[in-house]
Write a protein that binds this DNA or RNA. Structure first.
Lengths: 195, 195
DNA sequence: CTATGTGAATTTATTCACAGCA
DNA sequence: TGCTGTGAATAAATTCACATAG
């Protein structure tokens, strides 16, 4: 589903058309047309036969499905290379996300602004509770990952995006999505013919 | 499959055991035990009943399946925040990857060393052909993504890991894996109970 | 007694084909 | 005529149960 939102947004910026057909969207994101129709029809019908899907309606529906109607605030922990890249990343807006806070342990970074966000002391993660931030992004060295996780959970965070290449354990109620950027690279040689 | 390699490697570093059972590995990576046995048995049997899988053998086999036996060289294009993070990323070794070259258009970066790799001029991407580097990593602003892609393809690159949030078109023979770090974040609210 | 490997059963996803609406 | 939405057919992946090996 997220990929459809991505495709629809892309199309809305590039094309002048008001609608997009399942075929066009399919070509854009790299799946089959019937796949898209099936997926959408599962959530109710919002396409127009003979025309396609109205882009604005489509984006609205998919956002609703993904529960992205309201802007979601997330807290970033770890403002190293990766963290900085995430802060500067322009793509979060598409998915109604905003990195509303950033934390680090490094005294030299605390208090400074990065991409419009002031870096705060990682020791003060508990304030996330007051600020009602419920999503956390972990971009710290792997040794620190579990410790930060525990703090995030304690601060009431309900969802964690984990960029450190280590397994983090959390209570059942908290959802973790692990992203190992190297793991994706590992899929490549399988498709590449060989030497 | 990549996740099994990840799990096995993790286990080998943390535990002192020589073998791992499907149950333990399953718990580590978050799938079912029979799932793992099925997946492995598809590629032939290399486990020992009553004991489990010998870790060294397991890692070797999975690497073979993923065609990761030899170290794979990859070229990074775009040494911004994200590119720097990738260069500094410690996890590539697990998957037998090595970022053997880095390119950028910024004159101030060219010639300087970053994480042990000298940044070269992106105009000279064609030298990848001579160096026999067949994998490319795109970490440039989205406007530049397609142009760099074309250059990579022209230089004989067979697989591309695309971190830019734009669709890139390539000849059929070239495999692209798209990674939109924001897209993964979009999956989170769906699992998080709501407000 | 423990843990693998695999046929069989079940569930889920993919693909097709086509009726129906603009 | 073009494109959606969906039931039916097909394929694939999950799950189970258990024979078998250490």
């Amino acid at each position: 589903m997220p990929v459809y939102l991505w495709g629809a947004t892309l199309f809305s910026r590039q094309g002048a058309a008001r609608s997009i057909s399942s075929h066009n969207l399919a070509a854009l994101v790299g799946v089959n047309a019937w796949q898209i129709r099936k997926d959408f029809s599962y959530f109710g019908d919002f396409g127009t036969p003979g025309v396609g899907y109205n882009i604005a309606t489509l984006i609205k529906h998919v956002k609703k499905i993904l529960k992205l109607e309201a802007v979601q605030k997330a807290a970033l922990v770890g403002v190293g290379n990766l963290g900085s890249a995430l802060l500067a990343f322009p793509g979060f807006g598409v998915y109604s996300f905003q990195i509303a806070a950033a934390f680090d342990v490094d005294r030299r970074k605390i208090g400074k602004k990065k991409s419009g966000v002031v870096v705060e002391d990682a020791a003060k993660l508990h304030i996330l509770k007051e600020r009602k931030i419920r999503l956390g992004i972990i971009a710290v060295p792997e040794e620190a990952a579990q410790g930060i996780t525990d703090k995030l959970v304690h601060a009431g965070v309900k969802g964690i995006l984990n960029f450190s290449s280590r397994y983090i354990s959390v209570p059942k109620k908290v959802k973790v999505i692990n992203i190992d950027i190297a793991m994706d690279l590992a899929r490549l040689p399988y498709y590449v013919p060989s030497d």
